[in-house]
Design a protein around this nucleic acid. Structure first.
Lengths: 157, 157
DNA sequence: GACAAAATCACCCTTTAGTATGAACGAAGA
DNA sequence: TCTTCGTTCATACTAAAGGGTGATTTTGTC
Protein backbone atom coordinates (compact mmCIF):
# COMPACT_ATOMS: atom_id res chain seq x y z
CA UNK A 1 0.00 0.00 0.00
CA UNK A 2 2.85 2.38 0.85
CA UNK A 3 4.90 1.19 -2.20
CA UNK A 4 1.85 1.82 -4.40
CA UNK A 5 1.60 5.42 -3.11
CA UNK A 6 5.27 6.10 -3.84
CA UNK A 7 5.18 4.74 -7.42
CA UNK A 8 2.11 6.76 -8.27
CA UNK A 9 3.54 10.12 -7.09
CA UNK A 10 7.23 9.53 -7.86
CA UNK A 11 7.69 12.75 -9.83
CA UNK A 12 6.02 14.91 -7.24
CA UNK A 13 8.18 13.44 -4.47
CA UNK A 14 11.43 13.91 -6.33
CA UNK A 15 10.45 17.45 -7.11
CA UNK A 16 9.61 18.11 -3.47
CA UNK A 17 12.93 16.68 -2.29
CA UNK A 18 14.85 18.74 -4.83
CA UNK A 19 13.05 21.83 -3.72
CA UNK A 20 13.79 21.12 -0.10
CA UNK A 21 17.47 20.53 -0.84
CA UNK A 22 17.63 23.79 -2.76
CA UNK A 23 16.05 25.65 0.13
CA UNK A 24 18.55 24.00 2.49
CA UNK A 25 21.46 24.95 0.22
CA UNK A 26 20.31 28.53 0.05
CA UNK A 27 19.99 28.66 3.82
CA UNK A 28 23.49 27.17 4.21
CA UNK A 29 24.94 29.69 1.78
CA UNK A 30 23.20 32.45 3.70
CA UNK A 31 24.73 31.13 6.96
CA UNK A 32 28.17 30.94 5.38
CA UNK A 33 27.79 34.48 4.15
CA UNK A 34 26.80 35.63 7.63
CA UNK A 35 29.74 33.80 9.17
CA UNK A 36 32.21 35.24 6.74
CA UNK A 37 30.85 38.75 6.97
CA UNK A 38 30.82 38.55 10.80
CA UNK A 39 34.04 36.57 11.18
CA UNK A 40 35.60 39.11 13.54
CA UNK A 41 32.62 39.27 15.86
CA UNK A 42 32.39 35.46 15.96
CA UNK A 43 36.09 35.19 16.68
CA UNK A 44 35.78 37.70 19.51
CA UNK A 45 32.75 35.80 20.82
CA UNK A 46 34.64 32.52 20.73
CA UNK A 47 37.54 34.14 22.59
CA UNK A 48 35.12 35.55 25.13
CA UNK A 49 33.43 32.16 25.69
CA UNK A 50 36.80 30.41 25.88
CA UNK A 51 38.26 32.76 28.44
CA UNK A 52 35.08 32.89 30.45
CA UNK A 53 35.37 29.12 30.70
CA UNK A 54 39.04 29.51 31.62
CA UNK A 55 38.09 32.00 34.33
CA UNK A 56 35.50 29.62 35.75
CA UNK A 57 38.00 26.77 35.67
CA UNK A 58 40.60 28.93 37.40
CA UNK A 59 38.09 29.97 40.03
CA UNK A 60 37.15 26.38 40.86
CA UNK A 61 40.82 25.57 41.21
CA UNK A 62 41.83 28.62 43.17
CA UNK A 63 38.88 29.26 45.48
CA UNK A 64 39.65 28.08 48.99
CA UNK A 65 37.13 25.60 50.25
CA UNK A 66 34.97 27.06 52.98
CA UNK A 67 35.78 25.47 56.29
CA UNK A 68 32.97 24.39 58.50
CA UNK A 69 33.83 23.38 62.02
CA UNK A 70 31.43 21.03 63.73
CA UNK A 71 31.94 20.46 67.41
CA UNK A 72 30.75 17.04 68.45
CA UNK A 73 30.28 16.56 72.15
CA UNK A 74 31.53 13.17 73.14
CA UNK A 75 30.45 11.60 76.40
CA UNK A 76 33.28 10.58 78.66
CA UNK A 77 32.37 8.44 81.62
CA UNK A 78 34.51 8.88 84.66
CA UNK A 79 35.02 5.85 86.79
CA UNK A 80 35.68 7.14 90.29
CA UNK A 81 37.44 10.47 90.13
CA UNK A 82 34.90 12.31 92.20
CA UNK A 83 36.42 13.15 95.48
CA UNK A 84 34.10 14.03 98.30
CA UNK A 85 33.12 17.66 98.84
CA UNK A 86 31.11 18.31 101.96
CA UNK A 87 27.78 20.08 101.57
CA UNK A 88 28.44 22.91 104.04
CA UNK A 89 25.06 24.52 103.38
CA UNK A 90 23.26 21.35 104.35
CA UNK A 91 25.45 21.11 107.44
CA UNK A 92 24.40 24.60 108.52
CA UNK A 93 20.74 23.89 107.88
CA UNK A 94 20.90 20.80 110.06
CA UNK A 95 22.79 22.67 112.77
CA UNK A 96 25.28 19.89 113.38
CA UNK A 97 28.20 20.78 115.65
CA UNK A 98 31.81 19.85 114.92
CA UNK A 99 31.77 17.10 117.50
CA UNK A 100 28.51 15.63 116.28
CA UNK A 101 29.88 15.50 112.76
CA UNK A 102 33.00 13.74 114.01
CA UNK A 103 30.87 11.16 115.79
CA UNK A 104 28.79 10.64 112.65
CA UNK A 105 31.89 10.06 110.58
CA UNK A 106 33.26 7.49 113.00
CA UNK A 107 29.85 5.81 113.09
CA UNK A 108 30.02 5.58 109.31
CA UNK A 109 33.38 3.87 109.68
CA UNK A 110 31.63 1.13 111.62
CA UNK A 111 32.93 1.98 115.07
CA UNK A 112 30.95 1.24 118.22
CA UNK A 113 30.19 4.02 120.68
CA UNK A 114 32.92 2.62 122.96
CA UNK A 115 35.47 2.76 120.13
CA UNK A 116 34.41 6.26 119.19
CA UNK A 117 34.83 7.36 122.81
CA UNK A 118 38.35 5.90 122.90
CA UNK A 119 39.15 7.54 119.57
CA UNK A 120 38.10 10.99 120.77
CA UNK A 121 39.46 10.56 124.33
CA UNK A 122 36.08 11.15 125.94
CA UNK A 123 33.69 8.94 127.90
CA UNK A 124 31.11 6.56 126.47
CA UNK A 125 28.31 8.67 127.97
CA UNK A 126 29.51 11.72 126.09
CA UNK A 127 29.31 9.81 122.82
CA UNK A 128 25.84 8.63 123.70
CA UNK A 129 24.78 12.22 124.29
CA UNK A 130 26.26 13.34 120.98
CA UNK A 131 24.62 10.40 119.25
CA UNK A 132 21.20 11.25 120.65
CA UNK A 133 21.44 14.87 119.53
CA UNK A 134 22.71 13.70 116.16
CA UNK A 135 19.71 11.39 115.67
CA UNK A 136 17.38 14.19 116.67
CA UNK A 137 18.87 16.67 114.23
CA UNK A 138 18.99 14.15 111.41
CA UNK A 139 15.49 12.97 112.30
CA UNK A 140 16.47 9.32 112.43
CA UNK A 141 16.15 6.56 115.00
CA UNK A 142 19.24 4.44 114.51
CA UNK A 143 22.91 4.88 113.67
CA UNK A 144 22.51 2.96 110.40
CA UNK A 145 19.88 5.45 109.31
CA UNK A 146 22.08 8.32 110.45
CA UNK A 147 24.97 7.08 108.31
CA UNK A 148 22.66 6.52 105.34
CA UNK A 149 21.19 10.02 105.60
CA UNK A 150 24.57 11.59 106.20
CA UNK A 151 25.84 10.10 102.96
CA UNK A 152 22.70 11.04 101.08
CA UNK A 153 22.97 14.65 102.23
CA UNK A 154 26.68 14.63 101.40
CA UNK A 155 27.90 15.62 104.82
CA UNK A 156 30.06 12.49 105.06
CA UNK A 157 31.87 10.59 102.23
CA UNK B 1 76.20 79.98 42.91
CA UNK B 2 73.68 77.71 41.19
CA UNK B 3 72.19 80.66 39.23
CA UNK B 4 75.68 81.57 38.09
CA UNK B 5 76.22 78.01 36.82
CA UNK B 6 72.93 78.10 34.87
CA UNK B 7 73.57 81.47 33.25
CA UNK B 8 77.01 80.42 32.16
CA UNK B 9 75.88 77.14 30.48
CA UNK B 10 72.38 78.21 29.33
CA UNK B 11 72.83 77.15 25.76
CA UNK B 12 74.23 73.75 26.66
CA UNK B 13 71.33 73.05 29.05
CA UNK B 14 68.66 74.08 26.54
CA UNK B 15 70.24 71.88 23.94
CA UNK B 16 70.34 68.94 26.36
CA UNK B 17 66.71 69.36 27.30
CA UNK B 18 65.69 69.62 23.64
CA UNK B 19 67.62 66.45 22.89
CA UNK B 20 66.00 64.61 25.74
CA UNK B 21 62.54 65.70 24.66
CA UNK B 22 63.22 64.56 21.13
CA UNK B 23 64.37 61.19 22.37
CA UNK B 24 61.22 60.88 24.50
CA UNK B 25 59.03 61.87 21.54
CA UNK B 26 60.67 59.27 19.37
CA UNK B 27 60.14 56.60 22.03
CA UNK B 28 56.53 57.62 22.35
CA UNK B 29 55.99 57.46 18.63
CA UNK B 30 57.59 54.03 18.55
CA UNK B 31 55.21 52.86 21.28
CA UNK B 32 52.28 54.32 19.41
CA UNK B 33 53.34 52.54 16.27
CA UNK B 34 53.62 49.25 18.14
CA UNK B 35 50.22 49.72 19.64
CA UNK B 36 48.65 50.56 16.34
CA UNK B 37 50.31 47.75 14.46
CA UNK B 38 49.33 45.28 17.13
CA UNK B 39 45.93 46.73 17.87
CA UNK B 40 44.12 43.48 17.08
CA UNK B 41 46.26 41.36 19.35
CA UNK B 42 45.93 43.88 22.18
CA UNK B 43 42.17 44.01 21.71
CA UNK B 44 41.99 40.22 21.81
CA UNK B 45 44.19 40.20 24.90
CA UNK B 46 41.96 42.72 26.62
CA UNK B 47 38.91 40.67 25.74
CA UNK B 48 40.62 37.56 27.10
CA UNK B 49 41.54 39.25 30.36
CA UNK B 50 38.07 40.75 30.71
CA UNK B 51 36.24 37.53 30.15
CA UNK B 52 38.61 35.56 32.30
CA UNK B 53 37.76 37.98 35.07
CA UNK B 54 34.07 37.59 34.22
CA UNK B 55 34.45 33.82 34.40
CA UNK B 56 36.08 34.04 37.80
CA UNK B 57 33.39 36.39 39.03
CA UNK B 58 30.66 34.13 37.69
CA UNK B 59 32.27 31.13 39.32
CA UNK B 60 32.48 32.81 42.74
CA UNK B 61 28.85 33.90 42.46
CA UNK B 62 27.28 30.78 41.06
CA UNK B 63 29.31 27.83 42.24
CA UNK B 64 28.23 26.54 45.60
CA UNK B 65 31.08 26.92 48.05
CA UNK B 66 32.75 23.64 48.75
CA UNK B 67 32.26 22.73 52.38
CA UNK B 68 35.04 21.08 54.21
CA UNK B 69 33.83 19.72 57.51
CA UNK B 70 36.20 19.58 60.44
CA UNK B 71 34.88 17.50 63.28
CA UNK B 72 36.25 18.46 66.65
CA UNK B 73 35.40 16.08 69.44
CA UNK B 74 34.76 17.81 72.71
CA UNK B 75 34.83 15.75 75.87
CA UNK B 76 31.80 16.13 78.10
CA UNK B 77 32.33 14.78 81.54
CA UNK B 78 29.38 13.00 83.01
CA UNK B 79 28.99 12.28 86.66
CA UNK B 80 28.01 8.71 86.00
CA UNK B 81 24.38 8.15 86.89
CA UNK B 82 25.40 4.85 88.30
CA UNK B 83 22.98 2.06 87.90
CA UNK B 84 24.04 -0.52 90.41
CA UNK B 85 25.40 -3.80 89.06
CA UNK B 86 25.87 -6.49 91.65
CA UNK B 87 29.24 -8.16 91.84
CA UNK B 88 27.98 -11.73 91.48
CA UNK B 89 31.49 -13.16 91.56
CA UNK B 90 32.16 -11.54 94.92
CA UNK B 91 28.81 -12.83 96.14
CA UNK B 92 29.79 -16.39 95.25
CA UNK B 93 33.20 -16.06 96.87
CA UNK B 94 31.61 -14.91 100.10
CA UNK B 95 29.02 -17.69 99.94
CA UNK B 96 26.11 -15.44 100.89
CA UNK B 97 22.66 -17.01 100.55
CA UNK B 98 19.66 -15.21 99.05
CA UNK B 99 18.12 -14.61 102.43
CA UNK B 100 21.33 -13.29 103.95
CA UNK B 101 21.69 -10.84 101.09
CA UNK B 102 18.10 -9.67 101.59
CA UNK B 103 18.78 -9.09 105.27
CA UNK B 104 21.93 -7.16 104.44
CA UNK B 105 20.04 -4.95 102.02
CA UNK B 106 17.36 -4.16 104.57
CA UNK B 107 20.06 -3.46 107.16
CA UNK B 108 21.57 -0.98 104.70
CA UNK B 109 18.15 0.68 104.46
CA UNK B 110 18.42 1.40 108.16
CA UNK B 111 15.85 -1.13 109.37
CA UNK B 112 16.08 -2.76 112.80
CA UNK B 113 16.06 -6.54 113.12
CA UNK B 114 12.46 -6.34 114.27
CA UNK B 115 11.47 -4.35 111.18
CA UNK B 116 13.38 -6.70 108.90
CA UNK B 117 11.54 -9.64 110.47
CA UNK B 118 8.20 -7.96 109.85
CA UNK B 119 9.22 -7.11 106.29
CA UNK B 120 10.15 -10.70 105.49
CA UNK B 121 7.30 -12.28 107.50
CA UNK B 122 9.64 -14.26 109.74
CA UNK B 123 10.53 -14.10 113.43
CA UNK B 124 13.07 -11.82 115.05
CA UNK B 125 15.19 -14.82 116.01
CA UNK B 126 15.43 -15.89 112.39
CA UNK B 127 16.78 -12.48 111.43
CA UNK B 128 19.28 -12.66 114.27
CA UNK B 129 20.49 -16.01 112.99
CA UNK B 130 20.84 -14.66 109.44
CA UNK B 131 22.62 -11.60 110.77
CA UNK B 132 25.12 -13.69 112.74
CA UNK B 133 26.01 -15.79 109.71
CA UNK B 134 26.21 -12.66 107.61
CA UNK B 135 28.70 -11.05 109.98
CA UNK B 136 30.77 -14.25 110.01
CA UNK B 137 30.92 -14.45 106.23
CA UNK B 138 31.68 -10.77 105.84
CA UNK B 139 34.19 -10.96 108.68
CA UNK B 140 32.70 -8.00 110.54
CA UNK B 141 31.43 -7.42 114.05
CA UNK B 142 28.58 -4.96 113.61
CA UNK B 143 25.79 -4.20 111.16
CA UNK B 144 27.26 -0.82 110.33
CA UNK B 145 30.48 -2.53 109.27
CA UNK B 146 28.49 -5.12 107.33
CA UNK B 147 26.68 -2.41 105.37
CA UNK B 148 29.95 -0.58 104.76
CA UNK B 149 31.69 -3.71 103.50
CA UNK B 150 28.68 -4.75 101.44
CA UNK B 151 28.77 -1.44 99.61
CA UNK B 152 32.52 -1.57 99.17
CA UNK B 153 32.35 -5.05 97.66
CA UNK B 154 29.45 -3.93 95.46
CA UNK B 155 27.01 -6.56 96.61
CA UNK B 156 24.50 -3.89 97.69
CA UNK B 157 23.83 -0.44 96.13
C1' DG C 1 15.44 -41.85 99.01
C1' DA C 2 19.60 -39.99 100.97
C1' DC C 3 22.09 -35.99 101.67
C1' DA C 4 23.57 -31.22 102.13
C1' DA C 5 22.50 -26.63 102.28
C1' DA C 6 19.35 -23.20 103.36
C1' DA C 7 15.83 -21.37 106.07
C1' DT C 8 13.24 -21.32 110.04
C1' DC C 9 12.59 -20.71 115.11
C1' DA C 10 13.47 -20.95 120.19
C1' DC C 11 15.92 -20.03 124.59
C1' DC C 12 19.38 -17.88 127.25
C1' DC C 13 22.71 -14.75 127.96
C1' DT C 14 25.91 -10.62 127.26
C1' DT C 15 26.92 -6.51 125.06
C1' DT C 16 25.79 -2.45 122.79
C1' DA C 17 22.66 1.15 121.55
C1' DG C 18 19.57 4.52 122.63
C1' DT C 19 16.45 7.58 125.92
C1' DA C 20 15.74 10.63 129.69
C1' DT C 21 17.29 13.71 132.98
C1' DG C 22 20.44 16.48 135.26
C1' DA C 23 24.60 18.99 135.85
C1' DA C 24 29.20 21.27 135.35
C1' DC C 25 32.27 24.16 132.58
C1' DG C 26 34.11 27.38 129.16
C1' DA C 27 33.75 30.27 125.04
C1' DA C 28 31.29 33.55 122.35
C1' DG C 29 27.95 37.09 121.89
C1' DA C 30 24.15 40.54 123.20
C1' DT D 1 27.20 40.73 133.12
C1' DC D 2 24.08 37.52 131.72
C1' DT D 3 22.74 34.21 128.35
C1' DT D 4 23.27 30.85 124.97
C1' DC D 5 25.55 27.04 122.99
C1' DG D 6 28.66 23.37 122.74
C1' DT D 7 31.00 19.98 125.20
C1' DT D 8 31.60 17.10 128.81
C1' DC D 9 30.03 13.57 132.13
C1' DA D 10 26.93 10.80 135.24
C1' DT D 11 23.04 7.75 136.52
C1' DA D 12 19.27 4.90 135.52
C1' DC D 13 16.63 2.59 132.52
C1' DT D 14 14.74 0.33 128.16
C1' DA D 15 15.45 -1.45 123.65
C1' DA D 16 18.08 -3.54 120.36
C1' DA D 17 21.90 -6.14 118.82
C1' DG D 18 24.71 -9.95 118.97
C1' DG D 19 26.66 -14.75 120.45
C1' DG D 20 25.95 -19.61 121.35
C1' DT D 21 23.47 -23.80 121.04
C1' DG D 22 20.08 -26.76 119.43
C1' DA D 23 16.19 -28.13 116.67
C1' DT D 24 12.83 -28.54 112.76
C1' DT D 25 11.48 -27.98 108.07
C1' DT D 26 12.08 -26.99 103.33
C1' DT D 27 14.52 -27.38 99.06
C1' DG D 28 17.44 -28.81 95.57
C1' DT D 29 20.79 -32.32 94.04
C1' DC D 30 22.98 -36.78 93.28
Amino acid sequence: MIGNFISRHQLVIIYGIALAMLAFLLKWLELRFIIISHAFEIYIGAIAILFTALGIWLATKLIKPKLETIVVEKAVYITQLNQFVRNEKQLLELGLSKRELEVLQLMADGLSNQEIAAHLYVSLNTIKTHASRLFEKLEVKRRTQAVEKGKKLQIIP
